[in-house]
Design a protein around this nucleic acid. Sequence first.
DNA 1: AAGTGGTCTAGACCACTTC
DNA 2: AAGTGGTCTAGACCACTTT
Lengths: 235, 235
Amino acid sequence: MEKHLYMEIVRQLEKDILSGAYGPSDMLPSENTLAAKFGVSRVTIRKSLDILKNDGLITSMHGKGYFIKMPTFNKYHLIFDGKTGSDYSRFQKVLISWPSDEIQRALGIPADRRVVEFHRVLERSWLPVAYDEKFIPYERGMPSVEIEINYAEFPELLSSKFSPFAIKTKLEIGMSYPPAYVANVLECPADIPLLTVYRYVCDRSGNNVGYGRQFLSPDFGRLEADSDYSLTSEF
Amino acid sequence: MEKHLYMEIVRQLEKDILSGAYGPSDMLPSENTLAAKFGVSRVTIRKSLDILKNDGLITSMHGKGYFIKMPTFNKYHLIFDGKTGSDYSRFQKVLISWPSDEIQRALGIPADRRVVEFHRVLERSWLPVAYDEKFIPYERGMPSVEIEINYAEFPELLSSKFSPFAIKTKLEIGMSYPPAYVANVLECPADIPLLTVYRYVCDRSGNNVGYGRQFLSPDFGRLEADSDYSLTSEF
DNA sequence: AAGTGGTCTAGACCACTTC
DNA sequence: AAGTGGTCTAGACCACTTT
C-alpha cells in the first residue's frame, strides 16, 4: 500500500498501462472521470498524470485527452565523469604549449594562442586503463598550476572563471591512434587504435572553453549506457 | 513576456540562479516568501519550483527549504536507434543458427537453443558505414522471416511477443575485431578493431531476450552525447 | 454546446527541522 | 513553537477540440 493518494493512483495506472490494458496510442479516461473513479480531487489526478507524463508513459493533448505513448528505446543515459572505470588517477604532467591543429579547431583559437595541458593517467588495480588529456586556453594570471593539480577536474577547472551553470559539455566517442607517449604509458601498441572519448566544454554562447581527450586501453572495458525509459521507482 | 505566471517565475528564478546570485548550495526564499514576493498563490510557486527541480537546478528538503544544486556534468544523453549516422539500411541476410559462446552468454541460453540472426548494412551516401547484427532466441511458430524483414527493428521485432513497455535496453560501447564477412562488407581490414556498439534487450525480470552488435566503420564518425543539464526550453 | 486539458486561487492539514 | 516543504480539497476560469 502506498502512503499517498497520488502515488497509489500512479501505481494503479502504471500497472494498467504496462500490462497492456490500454493499447498503444489509446486514450485514457478523462481527468474528471478518473477523479470520480478514484474518489479524489482533480488536482490530485493531475499530479498523478504529471508523473506518468514525466516518466514518458503518456502524453496529453490540450482539448483532447491523455494518450498512451510508445517507448522509443533510442535515448540512453551515459555516465561519464572522466574517472569512470578507474579507482585511482595520477597526474602525469602539466605544461603550457602551442596548440596542434586538432586543439586549435576544438577550442576555436589561433595558432599563436597557447594552451595549458593537463595529462593524467587513470588506473584500476594498479593497471593503467586510460590516459586523459585536457586543454584550456592559457591566460595570464591563471591560477598556478601547482594549486590546480590537486583539484583539477574538468568543468571545475573552469568554474573559477565561469559560473558552473553557464557551462555545457558534449561527448564524442570514437577511435584513434594513441600518440607514442600514450601508447607507452598504457603499454599498448601505437599502431592499433584505441577507444577514445572527446569532451568539449562550452559556455552558453557556444564558445568552446575546454577540450579533453581520453584514450581508453582495452583493459578499460566498455562504456555502458542505459535506456532512458524508466519507471517511477522513487518518491 | 511569458504567457503564464508560473513560467514567468521560472524564468526569473532561473536567471537569478544562472547569474550566480545564489551561491552554490545556498538556500532559496521559502515558498511563502516567494508567493508573497511574486503576488501569487503558494500552489503556483510550487509549480515553478517543481519545474526547476525537474531541470536539476534545485533540490528541496522537507522541513528545511529549497537549495541550489550544483550541476554534475557526468550525465549524458546519447541518441542511438540503430540507424544513427546512416541514411539507408539494407538487409544482408537472415538465418537460423547455433549460438556462439558470445551469443549464449549474452542471451543466457544453452548451446542447443538456436537463434535467429538478422544482418543489416547501414549506408550513408552509398557508403557502408556500419554492420548490424541482431540475435533473438528462435522459437517454433515464429513469424515468417520474410515478413519480418520488411519491418525489422530491434525492440519492434520483440514487441509481438512482449508488451513494449515490458522491455528495457542497455548499450555497451567498446571495440572489437570484425569477423571476416563484416570486414568484407565494410571494406575494412580485419586486423584493426572497430568501434562496436552492443545492445541488450531485457524484459522487466532481467532476462535477456535480444542481443545486438553493431560494427562501426571509421567512416561512421563518432557517437555524440550531450550533457544532460538543460534549461527549461519547453514544458 | 459540451467535453477536454491547462492555469490559478485560498485554505486546510500533515510531517519534518530548527530553536 | 514557529517555520519549512508535502499532500489534498473544491471551485473558478480559460483555451482547445469535437460534435
